[in-house]
Simulated assay, not measured.
Amino acid sequence: MLNLVLFGPPGAGKGTQSEKLINKYQLVHISTGDLFRAHIKNQTALGQKVSQLIADGELVPDQITIDMLEEEIDKNPNAKGFVFDGFPRTIPQAIELDKFLASKGSSIAGVIALDVDKDELVKRVALRQKETGRLDDQAEKSQKRIDEYFNKIILVLPYYDEQQKLTKINGIGEIEEIFTNLCTVIDSY
């Protein structure tokens, strides 16, 4: 099973590249952000719990995120693998993901971090907000999410680096060029 973590700040291109990876490698995309938005849209109990947190640009507590993620993995028992987008965000989440996958006889094959500077991220998120109207992409909230990534979430990378599973890819450039670089890394697993 090919399980990948696509890592990067808001606006790094994780969603765009995930779609391309899904098509090429026939993987299931799991984006915690997309799952949260679906739960909010459908007004589930979970959606009501996380709605205000996301609207404020806050992180959802680990256990809620982990429970939701495990539920999504269990819905896809015949998957060839998963692309985890936006998860894990903390070392405890990374540890729980490893434990859960091990219980399924699987593991993370690799973690690919899309490296994009803050100025470029701000431009990309502003453009995405204009195109999609996503509430979490509004200037103040998106800046808070970008800062959260660089101050806290990025601290997960050494966990995977110690396991020799981390590769950094330049996330600035043409979409196809970045995708080619991602595939080169993935094909080496």
Rank of each mutant, 00 (worst) to 15 (best):
S188G: 10
P9T: 02
A102V: 15
D98E: 14
D85H: 03
F7H: 07
Q43Y: 04
R134K: 03
I186D: 06
I73E: 07
E19L: 15
K152V: 14
L155I: 06
S188C: 10
K141Q: 09
I40R: 05
E174S: 14
E70S: 07
Q63L: 15
G47D: 09
E58L: 11
S51M: 10
Q52H: 13
L182T: 00
L2I: 14
L101M: 08
S18R: 01
L101F: 06
E177P: 14
V28F: 04
P10E: 11
R37C: 10
R134Q: 05
Q93W: 08
T184F: 02
S51H: 05
L114I: 01
Y25K: 05
G33Q: 01
Y159G: 11
V116A: 10
K141E: 05
K99T: 14
G110Y: 03
N151K: 13
L46A: 08
G57L: 02
T132M: 05
A126S: 15
Q138G: 08
A12L: 11
D34K: 02
L155A: 15
P10V: 08
E162G: 13
K49L: 14
I186S: 09
D117W: 00
E174V: 05
I178A: 12
I186T: 05
P92L: 10
V83E: 01
N42L: 10
A109Y: 00
P158M: 09
C183Y: 03
K152N: 15
V28C: 08
V125W: 03
V28S: 07
A102G: 13
D56K: 14
T90A: 08
K168C: 08
G15A: 11
G133N: 02
D34C: 02
Y25H: 06
N3Y: 03
Y160D: 02
I54R: 04
E72W: 00
K141R: 10
V156N: 13
R89Q: 11
R145S: 11
A109W: 00
L166G: 08
G8N: 10
T132S: 14
G173K: 06
S142T: 04
L157D: 09
S103G: 13
D56S: 13
F84Q: 02
V185T: 07
R145C: 10
D74I: 09
Q52P: 11
E71V: 03
S106V: 02
K168E: 12
Y189L: 14
S31L: 06
G33C: 01
I108P: 12
E96I: 03
G11S: 10
V122S: 04
P10W: 05
T180N: 12
D67I: 02
D67E: 15
R134A: 14
D67Q: 10
D187H: 05
I64G: 08
S188I: 03
T167M: 06
I178P: 14
L4C: 06
E177Q: 14
I22H: 03
K99D: 12
L46F: 11
K165R: 02
E19P: 11
I66T: 00
P10D: 12
E131Y: 03
G47E: 06
D34I: 01
R124C: 05
A12R: 04
L114S: 04
G171A: 06
D74P: 11
G8V: 06
L59S: 11
T180Y: 04
E177M: 15
